[in-house]
Nucleic acid binder design. Structure first.
Lengths: 196, 196
DNA sequence: GTCTATATTGAGATAGAC
DNA sequence: GTCTATCTCAATATAGAC
């Protein structure tokens, strides 16, 4: 986490992130990353200790920024409904603004967890779960939301639907991210409708 | 698709599927698969032409079975609400019954699409989308469901939430798959509740 | 900060004996 | 149907010159 910042580093992380998102972490070679950056593979090791260090920087940066946004939003929200809406909007926003990081986190989470180095991913993921579930519980308590049978399950359904949009969302496509976010909020809050 | 069936083949596909689900397709070696099957890596090639052929068989078998279940359910369902419920239950059932195939499909879909050999994944995925979206449209038409702004978006939210459960569902954990399915249906049909 | 050159390891796959 | 033996290639990573 205590890394030396440089424009070149950030550039490489960005390029590598796009490739990881597209072909997977294991499916991307350091040579390809170096090619994209216009240098030879050996030169990459001047900037990073290893391929893992690159994905590590991509994810840790993204996760700390996202958690910070979550916490800011929570302290500004007047009630659980606003808080939930804010969290959902932040998440969709990062699908747009940090596509590669979201895609890699989403796609490589499980396989990266095998390595000790990436145990912090689990920790952050658990933190996020606690934060969202807290909002759902608050909303049940003050009756903004129906009594849910299980806020943990509800959170996971939300999380999975939101983050997965990164796999089909196209910044140049016909759905703007705000449109997607609003449609999702409508579905989440009102449901499909339960009339017989 | 026209493959010679044998118990040994099926066994290898099953073992390999578990490993692909756990470590990813690119992260699993043919040697590891052979080890798990109790043979040497060279011997694997008596059964399969390549590593890709193994994942191909895993996915194509799973997908044709799933699509068949979907179609059976649709022809048996008396109305759109029943049809939607049936589709959701089939999907959650396969998260339980075909964990590895669901996980691999979910996790490797995007990267496999790079290869011509796996273009059929896109085709099946599109078929499934048409089928689900048809049910949503039917339900809007007969007013079983609220008029949705976009049934395609709604379908994708559903699909992503349902298939992603494979990443955290534990067959020996505290949530039974039927419990998860029913909680999801409640959320989908009724929403969180939109009271101020 | 990048290059040249290369060490080292492990990957997918093949041929032919048993 | 499996093993022995091995080919071939590509992967991550390193050392030291420029």
């Amino acid at each position: 986490m205590t890394v030396t910042r440089s424009a070149r580093r950030d550039e490489i992380v960005e390029l590598a992130g796009q490739m990881f998102a597209e072909r997977g972490f294991a499916g991307t070679t350091v040579r390809e990353i170096a090619d994209a950056a216009g240098i030879l593979s050996g030169s990459l090791y001047h900037h990073f200790d290893s391929k893992e260090a690159i994905v590590d920087e991509l994810l840790s940066t993204f996760l700390s920024e996202t958690m910070a946004s979550y916490r800011d939003a929570l302290s500004a929200a007047p009630d659980p409904r606003s808080a939930l809406r804010a969290l959902v909007l932040i998440a969709f926003r990062s699908v747009h603004d940090h596509r590669a990081a979201v895609a890699v986190m989403h796609q490589e989470f499980h396989t990266l967890l095998q390595y000790p180095r990436f145990q912090y991913l689990r920790a952050v993921s658990d933190d996020a779960e606690r934060l969202w579930v807290g909002v759902l519980r608050d909303g049940m308590r003050d009756e903004s939301f129906r009594r849910l049978h299980d806020p943990v399950l509800t959170y996971r359904f939300i999380r999975d639907a939101v983050w997965n949009t990164v796999r089909w969302y196209d910044p140049d496509g016909r759905y703007r991210i705000e449109t997607i976010a609003n449609r999702y909020l409508e579905l989440l809050l009102d449901g499909l409708g339960s009339r017989q």
